[in-house]
Write a protein that binds this DNA or RNA. Structure first.
Lengths: 220, 220
DNA sequence: GTCTATAATATGATAGAC
DNA sequence: GTCTATCATATTATAGAC
């Protein structure tokens, strides 16, 4: 089995400049991500993927060396894009931003990217445990990096906001990320927006259920 | 395909009284639940299950009519046992119990049953989305009933505890249950106990991250 | 209650035409 | 870059011996 090769299995040496040489590859990835989410990893055959792309199963091997390479790419894109969106949103904030806005921004960005890239992110939430161990192993570093980012962010909130220093932030991070990721299983546009969801969860996490009076944003 | 039949596919008419006529059936279910959790639904073959039971694949059909019937039973046992444990724990409380103790009791019972029956409950959390639609359909009623129980419990907390009445309890329920169920993916005995976990999550949900001073249990 | 044998079908992957 | 054809293997489920 070839190692960590990424991108087209072979590159066409005669691809027209300016054309979209990766159109098929992208279609395969989008289709695979959708089917993996709907049916699971093992239940989705290469014939299924190819069929929905208007291709034959054998054609997939021009773009990917194996089924494992396809799910690997889907997993990678899911984590990396969410991670990038959240980091971008947080870095765009002023350095002295208040803790409440900081947490709200990260929660909103995570939720927004998660639900916008549903098929790719669901692969991570739903079928990560089903893929071959070798594929899982290759993505643990990416996941760990994103989790460390969140722990750092929570620590910054507690310090700058004067929040309860006795909370175990490792557990808080797990609870919050799991609560956010769970929305993939029940969120449907219409009943509520991503904005409302982010607002509700942020308020719950910061103020709790008991807070008798909603806390106004602190004047700076 | 036979319909909602439950229990052994056939009953042995000569099972010795006092013996354990369901030992094989139980072994099959336990093994199947474990493999479904580890490998996913489609990736677990009947040969895999039978092999780990010291049987041949064909022998499974004495106990179950199809693979779908096996996963159906695993899913059912997972939800029903957690639901029973939580209801039992809550009903054992005095009628005028304070809101904090009420929520803590439900959270602890859910976590405890969830992690004790890991293989069965993980089937619900991890591979529910992968099983055939007909199997999923048959279990939606059971899930809905348990979710309604939680919404009622949260409403009772808000009323009796004088908590913030503006929280959207449907969302709170989803956040809390997702946070709890997520523990299946990362909890390992030793780093922390179920007791500590339940305590931390309950405090977080009730008081939030910002509460500068941990709230003492209110005197009654 | 479990075995062996097998039917009917589906799978991931490869080779080579075009 | 996609197709057709095919290999080697695995799958669920059934039939009937013991």
């Amino acid at each position: 089995m070839p190692a960590l090769e990424r991108g087209p299995h072979h590159r066409s040496p005669t691809a027209a400049p300016g054309a979209a040489p990766f159109a098929s590859r992208q279609l395969i990835l989008d289709t695979a991500a959708r089917l993996f989410r709907q049916e699971g990893y093992a239940a989705t055959s290469l014939r299924d993927i190819a069929g929905e792309c208007g291709m034959q199963a054998g054609s997939l091997y021009y773009h990917f060396a194996s089924k494992d390479m396809i799910i690997g790419e889907v997993l990678r894109l899911g984590v990396e894009r969410v991670s990038e969106e959240v980091r971008r949103a947080v870095m765009a904030l002023p350095a002295d931003v208040d803790a409440r806005t900081l947490l709200h921004t990260a929660v909103r960005a995570h939720l927004s990217a998660l639900l916008e890239l549903q098929d790719y992110t669901s692969a991570n939430v739903r079928i990560f445990g089903q893929v071959p161990a070798s594929v899982r192993q290759a993505h643990i570093a990416t996941r760990d990096a994103y989790e460390r980012f969140w722990t750092g962010l929570l620590r910054r909130c507690v310090r700058s906001g004067g929040w309860n220093p006795r909370r175990k932030l490792g557990l808080v991070r797990l609870f919050v990320i799991n609560a956010l990721n769970g929305s993939l299983e029940w969120f449907t546009e219409g009943r509520s927006t991503v904005e409302q969801l982010a607002h509700e969860l942020t308020e719950l996490v910061i103020d709790g259920l008991a807070a008798p009076v909603p806390v106004a944003r602190p004047p700076r």
